[in-house]
Every structure is written in C-alpha cells, then in structure tokens.
Amino acid sequence: MIKGWVAPLLRSLLLILIASLLLMPVVLTVVNSFMTERDIMANYGMLGKTDTSLFVNLKWIPDWVSFQQYGEVLISTPKFLYLFWNSVSMVVPIIIGQALVAILAAFAFGKLSFPGREGLFFLYLMTMLMPFQVTLVPNYLMADRLGLLNHPGSIILPGVFAPFGVFLLRQFMLHIHSSYIEAAKMDGAGTLRILVSIALPMVKPGIAALVVLLFVDYWNMVEQPLIFLQDAAKQPLSVFLSHIQDDVLGVSFAVSVVYMMPMVLLFLSAERYFIEGIQLSGVKG
C-alpha cells in the first residue's frame, strides 16, 4: 500500500523539480518585473560589460514590490503599446485569414474527391515542412514583386496562405464520419451547406487549435519582420524585444511580461485545443 503511494510521489517530486527548472526563466522574468528600475540596474546593469568584474545578482525576491516598470512601459512610453498593437495587427489578420482560407481548402482536401488531390496535398505538406528559411525566399520575392516590402502586408499575406491551417484542419476534417456528409447529400444539401452546417461545428476544436497554434507561431515571429520590415516603427514587439537589453534594461522585464502574457493566457485558456492540435498535426508549434 505504502509502496504504491511512495513511487508516484517520488516521481511527482522529480517531475516537479524538472518543471520548476523549465519554468525558471518565466518565473524570473515575472518576479523581476516587479522590481524598481534602480534595483534592476543594480542587479543586472553589468550585463554585456567587459570592464567590470561584478557579477549579476540573480534576485528571486524583489526588495519591495513596485509597479514602476509597468508604469514606465504602459503609461509613460506609448511606443511600447504601439508596437504591441503592431504585433496584434499582424497576428490577428493572419489567424482570421488563414482560418477562413483553410476551412474551405481543408474541407475540399478532407471530404471531397477530385483528381490530383493527393499530389496537390503533398505539395502543401512539403511546403509546410520546409523551414522558414526556405519559404522566406519565395515570400520575399513575391512581396518584392508586389511592392509589399516594408509593409505589413508582406507578412500578413504569406501568413494567410500558409499551408499549415489547411493541413491541420484537414486532419480534423478526416475525423468527420462520411456518413454524416452522405446523409446531408441525400437530403439535397449543397457542398457549401454541408461545410457550414455539418463540418464546421464538428471541426470547432480544430479551429480553436489552429487559432492557438497560429498565435503562438506568429506572435513569436522574428525573422519575417526582420527581413521584410525595414521600418522600426512597423515592426512587432518580438523584433523590438531582441534589442531591448541595452537601453531599456530597467523596464525590459515588464516589457517581456506584457509581451508574453497574451500568449500565456491564451494558451492556458485553450490548452486543451492546443494539445489536441499538436497531437493531431504532429507538426509545427
């Protein structure tokens, strides 16, 4: 009896230990975001400096809790918020657009038979598997030709037509039993009707998963804006955060927290779909 209780506990403790190691960076960021700028500079100001023998002072508990960083970031410097909305204004159209485009295409790939279906889908699949370094080249060429460079469209449009959504939703579509569709066809429902009233409700979890996965993917993007958007004012927070350390070290923890918060909250509120999405797609994250 005791044995059956001790082993899970030990296992749990080990797993908790590992989990806390994994969470350490996140916790550190959150905790430090409540320090004053002065504390931050005192503890971490020597980062990247070679002319000092001081070490950083890893602080787990602030001397006192302060919202100074947040005040600085959210109230005193509007630019941060602008960049935040830059991110939002790229991610949201991509998600909505890709979901819409993908629902249609995924239904076609998943539930309709037409010549060349497998071959075409293979193209989507291979493209999806390509690292972004490969897809970036065609994206760039086309954005250049369309005159979209340095315009958010150069990121949004390739995002909307990225093959991942088609692939993920097709996986969900495949799970819809064909008998439903056959029955609807018997009743004389058109394809669009079937899609809207039968397939769509059944792939709702898939759409939720797609939204979360896409959000994670594009909220995080660094490379595309880095290359496509020369204009710093147009870039999303992610790019901006990459060179934050030097000049605004004092507030960078708060910036990081505000930046990661939407994603973390979205993840927590839709964790089920997120995991389901990963399991079903086995691709991307």
């Binding site: 939407p262 909250l265 979205l266 927590l268 509120s269 839709a270 964790e271």
Partner: peptide, 12 residues
C-alpha cells in the same frame, strides 16, 4: 483554470 485565463486575457 481555462475560464480564469480566458477572462484574464480579455481584461489584459
């Protein structure tokens, strides 16, 4: 947990 997170996201 999911509900709280969802509400928190909206509020944020």
């Amino acid at each position: 947990k999911q509900q709280i997170a969802g509400i928190a996201l909206v509020v944020l």
